[in-house]
Structure formats: structure tokens, C-alpha cells
Design a protein around this nucleic acid. Structure first.
Lengths: 331, 331
DNA sequence: GTGAAAGCGCTAACAG
DNA sequence: CTGTTAGCGCTTTCAC
């Protein structure tokens, strides 16, 4: 039999409300009342039923975080950062995996489970232009990504385009002249296209061919990076630089280059994007762009909580600055 | 204003109960009733309030999963596997990070948030002998790990000891004679000590020194692996084989060896434990033990759900078999 | 400062 | 097969 607040009240000889006040750290409770209640709680081993409180308050204290999958290291690290940030503000994170698929991403917006969280941090990767309408939701949400898709929603964007340009300029400065890009997919929007656009602009500014070769990939994993390089090699594409649109692919690419006997950075310099921890330990360690993950997480959570708690005014947009991290793979 | 079931009922001209029946796919509802209700739901844009249902049923449909942090790749992959398994049975996973600390691990058992999930999958790493009592809980729980700590709770264990022995025997078979072990901590229980015990038994069986050198580590990360090897090297310990008690440390160790100009597997063969995805892409790819993560996740979820739904009888224990995965780092 | 009563939105007997 | 009636355990006016 589970102990309820009412029983605690009885045991302590006070009213229900008093127990509630104590439990919720309400200011004006006499010390004696408080300690009486506390003792009763202890005696009975009372534990608050959070679900009941949720129903009563209309809040759950949970933030949903929608992302493709934790197996992709970037998202695991992001999730960790979001959990930390949420915890600081007294919220818990509920991770909603979308498998990086459009259906999964739309599902998150509509599932009844949505009502179990007070708001949503949403990082869509597969949504299309046609899904724009789905983003007009009536609950607190902040989008991780560009303003492109929905304009009237809070956004926290990373510097994809600038980052893409920076890292490409670095490759150029290191002497690369034929840079292959790995991970492009034909989405007209999203991180991929922006990073790519940044890269192209750097190449064009240097008067170089901005389309040496690109290998696409839907899922940005080590495996797709590896496959992309094997494809480039099979097609005998020549390149002296390789920009993978995220670190996981870059790591897979380096593996494939090594298997093929291509020296990095000797014959090909390789760079990625995301600055996941793994990149620091790779052989060679990977040059990449640090998108400011912790800052993104903090901003997103703060924005969402402001909205939930009614402090937000109009749709905000933050752009978190990126930083180039030069390591062995491009030296 | 949010739409409730009552309003749907009114709009459809039926009773509350009928709407509930339809929404919950209750068998015996006439087709006409059903479609009337469905139309009303559609008209009004009704969305079930899951919290209210939770309070009413006493269930939340959520399973809590306590683990150190998602930044450690093994746990990210485990979380993914648990989420998949839970999803198959109609449950959602709520991840509870413990930071790998005793206080965090105890907190999970006591926090009021506990009542937001129907059960707990618990993978303690820092609990001590003295905490045994804390594991006598009155809610459904399955422990990931050995029976050592609590005997009357459902367990799903991986083959730590056997795995440790297998991988060590492999190192020996490859000619290693002085094997250093990385990651030992002095816990008398837990995965580390078991893997180590397996390793020692293999060494002793071969008549070799089972205590060449070991470097401890509390947090089993790439960084601690790297630091451990730097320490061994600084102490000029000689070894021709290195067993890290998990892959992350092995990867960090390989990085340190490379930095020190030690060839793997030429001068030192390296092996890990966990078979995380990253190990397949490392240079050289890492020999390791596959503990059957997916199977562990499936079993744990199944066991927990059985208990939650009242199908479980007495405390069960599963031991999932491990498999040696030989790769370049020991060839 | 503390108590009584009315819900929060849904489920589940139990009738009908 | 459908409707009525109580709760689930907590919060929250609003009196006292």
C-alpha cells in the first residue's frame, strides 16, 4: 500500500494543505508544524506521487529532446549537454529518438506522449519544405538549427555556414587545391547544405573548383563516411583535401583512406565538423569545427524554459559562434 | 483552451466512457459510434492528456534507465538499445544520468521522480558493499550487472569474467608475455573486478605474472586510458600486451602509445572490452569483447516489463554470452 | 498560518 | 454495447 499525502496529514494531525505546503517549501509554515510534518513523512516513508502533482499543476517538469539516435556521437554529447543544462534549471529531459527519419520527426510533434513534457527541443534533420506547417505547434518549442524552416519559433543555430567556410579556408591555407566534400545530401535546407555553402564560398573566393567531388550520405555516420571515400577512390577522383560535413563521417573517411594506403595528412588533409570527443583521440587527431555544443544546449534550454514559464516575449534567435580546431589531420 | 475528453463526448453526443473506449481501442464499440467519436476528435483537435491517464491507471508507460553519462560511448549505445527494446513493448525510456557517482546512483533510487516511471533499469558502477540495503526497493527494478550486490532482484549480467579470460587468452596466444591491465579500480565488485579476475585467471593458467602492471581509473574514458598508459610509460614498465577494461580506455591507450612511438600491434598488442562502434574504425581497429549489448537490453526490458505487468514470478538472472572480436590491434 | 472543498482529465467498476 | 459514478493524489483558491 502506497502512502499518500492525506495519510501523512492524518499521522501528523494537520491538514492536507499543510503537508503540501511543507513538501513544496512554502514560506509561511511554522517551524513546529514543519517538523511535525517532516517526522510524519519520515515515519511513513512517504514519497510524493509526481504524476498526481503533474495533473494538478498542468506541468511535468520534463523537456522533450528529439534527435536522430544516440549512437551518433554528436547527438549523445548534445543530449548530455542538454541534460546538464536542464538539470540546472530544475528540469528533466525525455529523449525522443526519431531515427533521423521524416516520419519519426513528425511523430514527435503529434504523439500523445508530447503532453508528458512541458516543451520540446527539436533538432529535425529530415523534415522537408512541405513540412513547414507541422512546425506551427501550440506548445513551447525551440528549434535547433536555422531559421529557414519556421520563422516564428525560437531558434538556436550554430554557425554552420561560417564554420564551413573557416575550415575550408584552413584547408586551402594548408595548400589543398582539390577538396572533396563528403556528406552532402540534396536537402535544400539544414546543417548539411549550410556547411557546404560555406565551404563552396571559400573555394570560390580562392578561385578553385568548388565541385571537385562530393559524396552524399543520408545518415551521417562513420560507415557512410567510409563508404563515401571508398566510392571516391573507386571512381579515381583526385583530391588533396577532404571535408566531411561531420566528424563521424570524417573518422570513417580517415579509416578508409588508411585502408587504401593514402596518408593523412601527407597526401590528403582531412577535416570534419562537430568536435566530438572521439576526434581528439583519432589517429591522426582530427581537425574540426567546434560548434559550441554546451552553449547551444544552455541557450536552447533557457529559451524553452523562459517560454514555458511565461517569461518569453517574441520568437528569439541565437547564433552560437563556432571555432576552428586545428589538429594533426591537416598539419 | 485545451480540449478534453468530456468536450469530445459532448460534441459527438456520446458519453465520456465511449470516447475513452474508442481512444483506447477497446474492442466492443460499434462502428458508427467509433466513427462519430473519431470525427469529433478530429473536429476539435483533441489530444489525450497522458498525465491524467497516468494518474488514473497508476502507470506511466515509462522505464527509467540509470547510467553514468551518455558521453561514454558504451552507455550511449546501451541507451539506444534499451530504447529500441522498450519501444517494441510499448514503453518509453527516461534516462537518469548518475555521473557515475555513488551519490547520483543513490539519488535515482530515492528521487520523487522515480514515481514517474513504472520501473528502473539500473546499472550502478559506484555503489559499495555498504549500499546493499538501498537496493531493496519496492518498485520493479532490474539490475545490469552481477548478482553480487543484491540477490533478490532481477539481474541481467554480461559475461565479464569469461570475456576477460577469453581476450587475455587471445593476447597470450598471440605471444604476449607481459600484459598490463588498465582501468582497475579497487571496488571489490562490479564489471571491472570481474573482467580483471578473468584476465588474471588466464595469466595464471599460463604460468605468467598476473600483476605486470595495472593502472587504475575511476571514470572509464578515453582520457583515463591515455593517462594510464602515459603513467606506465613514465614508470618505464615493460609490457607487450595491454588489456583495457573497456574500449574507451583502450582507444585512449592506443592514442598514447602512438604518441610515444610505440607500434600497435608490433610492439604492444592492445585489446578492450565492450565492442563499441568506434573500435571498428580506430587505427588500428581494436580487438575487443562483444558483451551482447542488444541482447542485454532486450532481456532487461523484457524482465522489467514482465515484473511491471505482474507476469514475473521470482527473481530471475540472465547471463548473456560474450564473444571475442579479433581485429588489427592484436594481429 | 492553517483548513475545507473543488477540481486537474482520465479510467474503471457497475449498471442498464 | 453504452452511460453513470466514483475516484487516482495532489494543488489551490478562499475562508477562518
Amino acid at each position: 500500500m502506497v502512502v499518500t499525502m492525506r495519510q501523512v496529514a492524518q499521522h501528523a494531525g494537520v491538514s492536507l494543505k499543510t503537508v503540501s505546503n511543507v513538501v513544496n517549501h512554502y514560506e509561511h509554515v511554522s517551524a513546529s508544524m514543519r517538523s511535525r510534518v517532516l517526522t510524519a513523512i519520515d515515519d511513513l516513508g512517504y514519497q510524493m506521487n509526481v504524476t498526481a502533482r503533474n495533473l494538478s499543476t498542468g506541468r511535468t517538469g520534463m523537456l522533450a529532446l528529439a534527435l536522430p539516435e544516440l549512437q551518433l556521437p554528436y547527438f549523445a554529447e548534445l543530449a548530455d549537454a542538454v541534460m546538464d543544462a536542464a538539470d540546472d534549471l530544475g528540469y528533466t529531459v525525455l529523449i525522443e529518438p526519431t531515427a533521423g527519419m521524416r516520419t519519426g520527426e513528425l511523430e514527435v510533434l503529434r504523439s500523445p506522449r508530447r503532453s508528458m513534457s512541458d516543451g520540446l527541443i527539436y533538432s529535425p534533420t529530415a523534415l522537408r519544405e512541405a513540412d513547414r506547417a507541422a512546425l506551427s505547434v501550440d506548445f513551447p518549442m525551440v528549434l535547433l538549427g536555422e531559421r529557414a524552416l519556421a520563422s516564428s519559433v525560437d531558434h538556436v543555430a550554430m554557425a554552420n555556414e561560417v564554420g564551413g567556410r573557416m575550415v575550408t579556408e584552413h584547408l586551402l591555407a594548408q595548400g589543398c587545391r582539390r577538396i572533396a566534400i563528403v556528406g552532402a545530401h540534396d536537402a535544400e535546407t539544414g546543417a548539411g547544405s549550410l556547411r557546404q555553402r560555406g565551404a563552396r564560398s571559400a573555394l570560390e573566393a580562392a578561385g578553385l573548383d568548388s565541385d571537385v567531388a562530393s559524396a552524399g550520405a543520408q545518415r551521417w555516420s562513420r560507415e557512410t563516411g567510409r563508404a563515401a571515400v571508398m566510392d571516391l577512390l573507386a571512381r579515381e577522383v583526385r583530391f588533396d583535401g577532404l571535408l566531411a560535413l561531420n566528424d563521424a563521417m570524417a573518422l570513417g573517411a580517415m579509416r578508409a583512406l588508411w585502408e587504401a594506403g593514402v596518408d593523412v595528412p601527407g597526401q590528403v588533409r582531412v577535416a570534419g565538423f562537430d568536435d566530438i570527443e572521439e576526434s581528439r583521440y583519432a589517429r591522426p587527431s582530427l581537425t574540426t569545427v567546434n560548434p559550441g555544443r554546451a552553449e547551444i544546449a544552455r541557450r536552447a534550454v533557457q529559451l524553452l524554459v523562459d517560454r514555458i514559464e511565461g517569461r518569453a516575449v517574441e520568437a528569439a534567435e541565437y547564433q552560437v559562434p563556432a571555432a576552428l580546431v586545428v589538429r594533426e589531420s591537416t598539419r
